[in-house]
Amino acid sequence: MARTLAMFTDTSLCIGCRACQVACKQWNELGLEVPDWTGTYQNHTHFTDKTFRLVRFIEEPKPTGDLAWLLMSDVCKHCAEAGCLDACPTGAIYRTEYGTVNINQDVCNGCRYCVSSCPFGVVSFNETTGTAKKCTFCNDRIHNGLGPACAKACPTDSIQFGFRDDLVTKAQKRVETLKAMGFKDAQLYGADSKGFLGGLNAFFLLLSKPSTYSLPEQPKLPQRNVVVDSLLSVGSAIVIGLGALLAFRDREQGDGNA
């Protein structure tokens, strides 16, 4: 396997220009969508089958009375332990040699299990193609020596693309700098490969706690309970089975024969 590639989205550098969001749409030829009234500059409300990069606008009054406007370009996390991938019954979702998670549109049959299996609400169903869609990590581009379209378009290098280990080192330094500058809540999200989901190949630098950005504090792999839940089902099957067994073993007449 090739060295793992990653995208590092440093929200402290984001200016909310949405060049990434548009570049993604353009490169991937994602079509028109009627927007929601969100009451802020953000559109759309969620990831959709036509919005793989979504810039979030979060107005957060600071304790000092000043305002913080947190801007964050959100994307599929390309989890090292990916719920969507584990869920996919067709094998349409696969991991590339670069460690990214991609959906093979020719294999996907539109069962939508991946949609409910992403801890971040990333995968979306496209009614027209009948398949599931999400950020491809610009699979076509990275296989041809180009970086992702969103990273390329970002004017402030808020989205950086490269080898994961390099980016993590860089990101750690950046957190230190920011902390020294007084951003005491600056933190990495998903950089730690020993942390949740085995680390995210699209990881983030946040200026506030994850929930402020609608990110789960401790996302979990959905498939973690298959064994327990199955055993409980088996247990329940045994009880029911025994009950039925007894009912039918009963050599006496049943009571319904009136």
Binding site: D86, A87, C88, P89, T90, G91, A92, V107, C108, N109, G110, C111, R112, Y113, F125, N126, E127, T129, G130, T131, A132, Q223, V226
Partner: peptide, 26 residues
């Protein structure tokens, strides 16, 4: 019928993931 692309039901049978309820279910 509920699949987005029903004729690709067979794709479910092209893969077998024993830990995946959807896969074994199919």
């Amino acid at each position: 019928a509920d699949l987005g692309v029903p004729r690709r039901f067979l794709n479910m049978l092209a893969a077998f993931k024993f830990w995946d309820p959807m896969s074994i279910g199919a």
